[in-house]
């Protein structure tokens, strides 16, 4: 029904938010479209829109039913009305706003002192620590989305040889820890329970709580490169 390079469906999440769903995929082109639409809606919000949140391949839009119910004709639900508004908006080409594509280089200490399970992890995938470090630092990652914790960036995708399963039970993970889950990698901005396997830690602050304008080091669309540092460099950072 939708004539678009990126087919989507609009479905409700309850009575005060809806989802624009581009399919259950991790794909750079789809994610770039999600982020273009996110920026378009942030710059030109729909009437009654409270917030828009992008994910890997979907966008959710939160809206104020009470504010909108006054302008919606009788016998029409607010959902149908805002869905219609949104469809009009999505039929227009996405603004080619400057995608940030900021390149961020992040130092990581891949040492047992900050990642005690590293030897066991290396053994489980039959790889040396040096190889793991080379594979993890050897490519650029896209920030697909932020979620889970303030400032937590979902980065993809890692080399298949260092893909790791999630832990079956969450464990306490220290702030700055670099984790892997499947072919995703990410940095814990805060100490928190989590299910990802920890391979290293960065001394770099990921969340700046007191700086409203630069709250998070990373934003969706950014490119990340990791580079190795020694435990001495980690301590003196």
């Amino acid at each position: 029904m939708i004539d678009s390079a990126f087919p989507y469906r609009i479905i409700p999440i309850g009575d005060s938010s809806l989802l624009v769903d581009y399919g259950n995929v991790i794909d750079e082109a789809v994610n770039a479209e999600v982020l273009r639409r996110f920026r378009q809606l942030q710059q030109h919000p729909l009437k009654g829109m409270r917030e828009v949140v992008p994910a890997y391949s979907s966008l959710s839009i939160y809206y104020d039913v009470f504010q909108l119910c006054k302008m919606v004709p009788e016998k029409t639900t607010v959902f149908d009305w805002i869905k219609n508004e949104l469809q009009h908006r999505l039929q227009q080409p996405a603004l080619q706003t400057e995608e940030s594509h900021k390149l961020v280089r992040i130092p990581v200490c891949y040492d047992e002192s900050v990642a005690p399970e590293l030897p066991a992890i290396c053994a489980s995938i039959n790889i040396s620590r040096e190889e793991l470090v080379a594979l993890h630092t050897g490519r650029q990652y896209r920030v697909y989305m932020l979620g889970f914790l303030p400032g937590f960036a979902y980065l993809g995708q890692t080399d298949e040889r260092i893909a790791l399963p999630r832990k079956s039970q969450p464990h306490l993970i220290k702030a700055g820890s670099i984790g892997i889950a499947g072919r995703q990698t990410g940095i814990y901005p805060l100490t928190s329970p989590g299910g990802w396997q920890v391979i290293g830690r960065t001394p770099q602050a990921i969340l700046q709580k007191t700086d409203d304008h630069n709250l998070t080091l990373l934003q969706a669309g950014d490119i990340v490169e990791f580079y190795p540092i020694t435990s001495d460099e980690f301590e003196s950072h």
Binding site: I13, G14, S17, L19, D21, N24, V25, I26, V53, A55, Y56, S57, S58, L59, S60, Y62, M145, G147, F148, Y154
Partner: peptide, 13 residues
């Protein structure tokens, strides 16, 4: 059993 990727959730989900 479909492996789902992270997507938005809210109060009451």
């Amino acid at each position: 059993r479909q492996e789902m990727i992270s997507s938005p959730v809210c109060f009451g989900t």
